[in-house]
Design a protein around this nucleic acid. Structure first.
Lengths: 170, 170
DNA sequence: TAACGCATGTAACAGGTTACATGATTTA
DNA sequence: TAAATCATGTAACCTGTTACATGCGTTA
């Protein structure tokens, strides 16, 4: 699934603005997808042109006006088709591991810094994900969605352990 | 680090052909980077134009002719600079987790299939990585490179556990 | 007064993917 | 005889990134 189908997926649970879609992506799906407004708005525009979503403009007084997008029956059909395709390989690229791999000529202090940068990032992400659990359960988390949460926790926890152990052993 | 610097990094450990670079990427770095020939050859061409590498053509009788690329002093300078920059966030996108997230209207059998597809992939990757350890240690694995290996093992192991537990609990 | 939340969008560009094209030798 | 290994490359395309542009109300 690419941005296109992912946005359709989010809209299947109800109409949303681009801003809200970004919010969902940044909180609940942050640990396995990465989105930016530069992708969300152009994608919504294309989806509208293809008639997979409809746009409803809403004027607001205190806040900027907003566009609420709703998935169409055609959009639902496209999504359903995408959802039952065989799954694709995950994409994982780590700059930190790449640095470690190429670090032969760097001082240990530099290597320690790389490790530390990643430890901070992962600790932050882990804390955010854990903090997210309560709100998410309130707003209706399914058992299967819980797997994606557990996956994230397990991933951050296991790799943090490796990074921390490596740091002490330098 | 993007493809450009990664290829420079590999060439810092000695001259290589594009084919060999691919091989290194597919075996040792496979668990945190993904490369294709369609990226490697065009990148080598650009690097040559920028004089960051030099090409030596070698005629072979039994096998196709090959081009051996060597990093230049300018190339080494570019690489050194890239290596000490602050590290970038890792990129992680999981199609399987995305399917699980959107699976409300799918039958449990379909969810089980998603899980199974990923379990097979991860088991395969884990086995390949473990199998790689011996050759890699023979060809000179540094302590810091060992971290990248441990990271991969920890990641596959921890997430496999989550996926397998989820499968039994469906 | 600085930062954050709300809210949308475009244009240029980078980076990599996919598919195609070729072809001999060796191994199963 | 099918598949794998060795070996290189191009062209079109897709997808997303980065940077820019705007602007009010509220909170710290």
């Amino acid at each position: 699934m690419k941005g296109r189908e992912i946005i359709l997926g989010i809209l299947q649970n109800g109409p949303h603005t681009g801003y809200e879609i970004n919010d969902i992506l940044q909180t609940r799906l942050n640990h396995f997808f990465d989105a930016t407004f530069g992708m969300i708005y152009p994608t919504l525009k294309k989806l509208e042109q293809e008639k997979l979503v409809t746009k409803q403009q809403v004027a607001q007084t205190d806040k900027p006006n907003k566009n609420i997008y709703t998935i169409t029956p055609t959009g639902k059909a496209v999504l359903s088709k995408a959802l039952i395709e065989p799954t694709a390989d995950e994409i994982f690229k780590s700059d930190v591991l790449m640095r470690l791999y190429f670090s032969q000529n760097l001082p240990a202090s530099q290597v320690a810094e790389f490790l530390q940068e990643e430890i901070i990032r992962k600790e932050t992400k882990l804390a955010e994900l854990k903090a997210q659990l309560d709100h998410w359960m309130d707003s209706g988390m399914t058992d299967v969605q819980k797997i994606t949460f557990d996956y994230g926790i397990a991933y951050y926890t296991a790799t943090l352990e490796v990074l921390e152990k490596a740091k002490t052993q330098l």
